[in-house]
Every structure is written in C-alpha cells, then in structure tokens.
C-alpha cells in the first residue's frame, strides 16, 4: 500500500505548494489547482488568490509558456471531432494539451450534464492530456466565471490550453479576452457565421476553420463565401482552413501551422497584460459598481492607474491596487 495523505490534508491544499508545482510544470498539480479555483467559499477565494499570485507573470519571470487557444462555433459544427484530431496532432508533436470544455447545456435546477469530454477522443493513460468540463453558467454561450482563472493555472503546466465554447457572436469575444488565438469553427452549408461576419455582429477571428471537408462542393463553396466576405471586410489575410475528421483526417497539419503562425505574430506579453488590466477593471466594477469607478475618477483614470502597475501582476493584485486607490481618493 502506498503512502496516502489524509483526506483532510489533501483538501487543505497549500497554495504555495500548488503554485510551486505548477511553476515547475508539474501537470499532476493541475486538477487540484482547478478545484481550488472553482471553490467559491471565502477560504477558497483566499486560497485561489494566493495561488494566482504564485503563478503570476512576475512569479514566473514572464508570461506563461502555453499557447492559449479559443475554439468556438455553433452547436453541431464539429468542434469535438476537430479537437480529437487537434489533440492527437499536438501530442504527435510532443506538446502537452489541456482542454477546458465549457459545456453549452444550460443549467436546469442548478445542475448540468457535462458530456463534452466523451466526444473528444484521447488516451486516458496519457498524462499529457487533460480535459475539464464546466457548465456554461447563466450567460448563454458565455464563459463560466472561473474560466479565465482556470486558463491561468493551466498555462504554466501545459504547452497548449484550449478553451472550447459554443455559440456565435458573443462567445468569440469572450474567448478573445482570455486567449492568444481564437479559431471559429464553421460547418459548411450553415450560413450563420457568414451572416454574422458580414453584419459585423461577430469580430473577425484569427483563424476560420471549415469542418466536414469531406462534403466536397458544399465545403468548397463555404470556403469561397467566407474568403470573399473576409476580403470585403479588409481581412484578406485571415487564414481559412478546411478540415475533415473522417478517417483519414485532412487539413489538421495545416490548421496546427495556421494557429502557430498566428501565435508567432501576436505580441503575447502586450495582449495578455492588457487583458489582465481589462479583467481587473471589470471585476472591480462588478464588485464596487459605478460609485467605485467614480471614486477612482472614472473608467479612463482607472485604466491609466492600471497601466502604471507592474505588467507582471495578476488580476487579483490589480484589483487590490484599484481598491487601495479608491480608498485613498474616497
């Protein structure tokens, strides 16, 4: 019988210890870190804040190594099959992958059925792959509140972190706040993404993926229509990749390259720093409302204040900075 720590010891996870393991890239710390992030009790929130501090860019000595990728699209577009193929392709390249599956099933009576992971094929004995499901929460297609924090704790330990969400229009904006690269998945023959793009309801994603490439003409037409819409919107260079997950899968290598290429041109440090500041502002506003913002001299002043902070600070520290300033000014 191997040595087993008591349940109590394991429940009272030490944030410093967890943070150290994550910094060292110890993937076995990830599930416990995710449990800690999800804990909404006061003690839990304190622990989560401590943990986030342990893995802030300042503590890591720079931005976390993971490529943060959002994969989003309408229901039935083939995201799970696509992810099965992508996970396999990344593993072939030796990259570890964590997938946060934000399940679209709306909460009923508070509960939710999380079935997405069943559709993402993977080898359960491969510790280089982690899949974690969460319910979408109250906002249709939106991100579960702790998703951003979950991405942050996974980012030091995995090479790729995927946030999978469902929806068109709002979800890719939510995902863009959290991820370096956003891929929108389009099923040929369904015009919603095309219409949303043209109408400007949807922001132009970093990569467009057309699934079910085996449909032939239909897939080719979808590709043509999207390309011409992108040209009209002045986004000619946005890559459009057609894939098929029916064996033998095609287009996956090209997609991996397109995602890598986007990551290559993004200023990750600037983008993530800015995202953290915006998130801190949003969190402060939720907590303290308009009066809180007024105490800071308004939204613009608050942002300037945030920009003056160390770029390596994590969101809770930034919120604390705002709160300190509000107390002094008020």
């Amino acid at each position: 019988m191997r040595d087993r720590r008591s349940a109590a010891a394991r429940t009272a996870v030490d944030a410093a210890e967890l943070g150290r393991r994550l910094r060292e890239g110890d993937r076995t710390a990830a599930p416990a870190a995710l449990n800690a992030i999800e804990d909404r009790s006061q003690a839990g929130r304190d622990r989560a804040r401590a943990l986030l501090h342990e893995i802030s860019p300042a503590a890591l000595g720079g931005e976390a190594r993971a490529h943060l990728i959002g994969v989003t699209g309408p229901p039935g577009a083939g995201k799970s099959s696509l992810l099965s193929a992508l996970v396999a392709a990344w593993r072939e390249r030796g990259r570890s992958v964590a997938v946060l599956a934000v399940d679209p099933s709306s909460r009923r009576s508070g509960g939710a059925l999380l079935g997405d992971r069943a559709r993402i094929e993977h080898d359960p004995r491969d510790d280089g792959v982690l899949i974690r499901s969460t319910a979408a929460g109250s906002r249709l297609g939106g991100l579960a509140p702790p998703t951003r924090e979950a991405v942050q704790v996974l980012a030091p330990a995995y090479e790729v972190v995927v946030v999978e969400t469902v929806g068109v229009g709002q979800s890719e904006t939510d995902v863009a706040e959290v991820c370096d690269t956003v891929a929108v998945v389009v099923q040929p023959g369904s015009g919603d993404v095309l219409q949303f793009l043209k109408a400007g309801i949807m922001e132009i994603p970093d990569v467009l993926v057309i699934t079910k490439g085996d449909l032939g003409d239909v897939a080719r037409r979808a590709r043509r229509d999207l390309a011409s819409a992108l040209r009209a919107l002045g986004a000619r260079e946005t890559p459009v990749v057609t894939v098929s997950s029916i064996p033998p899968p095609t287009g996956i290598d090209e997609l991996v390259q397109a995602l890598d290429a986007h990551r290559g041109v993004v200023d990750v440090k600037a983008a993530r720093t800015s995202a953290r500041r915006l998130a801190a502002l949003a969190e402060f506003a939720t907590e303290h409302g308009e009066s809180g913002l007024r105490a800071l001299g308004g939204r613009r002043e608050a942002l300037l204040l945030l920009e003056a902070q160390d770029a390596g600070l994590e969101v809770p520290r930034l919120v604390e900075a705002l709160e300190r300033a509000a107390r002094q000014d008020g």
Partner: peptide, 10 residues
Amino acid sequence: RDAGMDVVYE
C-alpha cells in the same frame, strides 16, 4: 442533474 448536481457522463 435534476437534483442540482454537475454530472459528468461519458
């Protein structure tokens, strides 16, 4: 689920 739990079913 109807009792309010999060249910993972594969």
